[in-house]
Amino acid sequence: MALTQSDIDRELAHIRESYGKARAEGAPAADHPPRDFPPYRSSVLRHPKQPLVAVHGDPETVELHTPVFGHTDITAIDNDLTVQHQGEPLGERITVSGRLLDSRGRPVRGQLIELWQANASGRYAHLRDQHPAPLDPNFTGVGRTLTGDDGSYHFTTIKPGAYPWRNHENAWRPAHLHFSVFGAAFTQRLVTQMYFPGDPLFAYDPILQSVTDDSARQRLVATYDHALSRPEWSLGYRWDIVLDGPSATWIEEGR
């Protein structure tokens, strides 16, 4: 028997309640989703049950350094997803900008940000996406860029559509952009999703709701920024990305 949205809602409410209680009793805020999150069904068999083993690295620890990307790894138009084909993609053109920072607020320079997304109809250019929404021959939905000296990044794309998935009956993902980000250390690696403000699907989505902490969840939602909108061209969204985890430079500073 298929799970309904009310089944999922009950599970989510229960998890939120337990989290609220734990917080009231002094537990720290959870910045990341738990890997074991039953309302997201695919997580059930894919999370470790043993606790993670803590590593306190010295500066030679491999993970405190990071892969290097450079101008050979991107082409000049890779951050404009609207110019990759002969025609213009359908949809609402947007620009997405922000800064990549470490948790001390320092810009992460020259690192790789990759973006992928569904088209305006909510369909991925992926064979396994069987959502019967139209493909757009003028939109693939993949971009990449390197951050600037101030950690800034810029993408031009179109606003993706919401799409259904099979987690439970009538499950829909709110519109989102997938981001993959490298930091100043491999420990700071981040894969995440950016959402658009005011989406009515937020409350129903077990993936977004896997981030139980309200203020942490809010950090996944971009801000509409009128100053970033380009006249007669595109609407602007601002989304800063803050990376977690130590790096070799911190360890050295701490010596």
């Binding site: 990341h32 993959s180 942490a216």
Partner: peptide, 30 residues
């Protein structure tokens, strides 16, 4: 809209952007 306390972890560090799954459809991107 900038509430100074928002996004700041107790230690005075910026609170991190939460992780999310890579999902099923990264195959043509990553």
């Amino acid at each position: 809209g900038l509430a100074p306390a928002e996004g700041l972890a107790p230690a005075g560090k910026l609170a991190p952007t939460p992780s999310h799954t890579v999902g099923p459809f990264y195959g043509y991107a990553l």
